[in-house]
Amino acid sequence: MSLGPLQLKNPVLCASGTFGTGQEYIDYVNLSRLGAIVSKTVTLEPRLGNPPPRLAESSFGLLNSIGLPGPGVDAFIAEDLPLLRSCGTLAIVSIAGQKTTEFGELARRISAEEGIAAVEVNISCPNIEGGGCFFSDDVDAASGATRAARTHTALPLFVKLSPLVTDIVEIATSVLDAGADGLTIANSFPALSVDWQGRKPRLGNITGGLSGPAIKPITLRLVWLVAEKTRAPIMASGGIMTADDVLEYMVVGATACQIGTANFLDPQVSIKILQDLQNILAREGIDDINSIIGTLKEK
């Protein structure tokens, strides 16, 4: 199947930050069967990550404030990238900068390496030149980061949007105009978990991102809105736990789906979803999975 310029063997991908370099799952999953693996987000410099606690549980969901810990792009290229490439499926590298120019620098560095199928731009991170607002928060910052990356890479370029914006279609249109080949919709939702007895936030960084089935209907609407208005290639990400969830996202316009938090509940879930998907399509007599995409009947 075609996801913009990218050819996928199936629509089941694993999301950034939930699947390591793939090697963490090698005992549980035949990695070569996955549509693609999106790496954890790579930054220019090494990062410690946020102080613990980094996780808080909620009903049908998980809050995290991990803080993009990582060794920086040099060590990523030397150590993590060979692992990611050895998975036997498409490697999509997620990048995030603290300044607009860093997105360009990261795209340039990544594109110089062999065996990378695409770049995913993580714009849900603070812009230190923009008063700490997230790049994903406004049209100028989001399109600026996209343009910086686009200028420095010929690889297929996808931008991962934040779900918490006033008008996601406006942001989507602006990053597509800035040269993105497609979109990932969406990141986790900014959220708060509180221990009221201790009068304390449960996360070391106070707030975090909510993921899991709790957010699925909200993200489903966002995918539908953007797919209708832009016709862009979309990877959906938001609370996908089952093959039915994948099909729901495809019906509203996604071409592929990224499995994220579900990997934590069952390390084999990605392959189980893929198998279930094949069984459901056979049962329903659907020969071509592409025929599902964007088929929501609104009347």
Partner: peptide, 26 residues
């Protein structure tokens, strides 16, 4: 607290002293 238990989610960070004992990492 862990989500995955296998090193993927990076949620169960513990501060550990650097070998020089001057700083720390997770």
């Amino acid at each position: 607290m862990m989500a995955c238990g296998i090193g993927a989610c990076q949620g169960c960070a513990q501060a550990v002293l650097d070998e020089s004992n001057t700083g720390f990492h997770y």
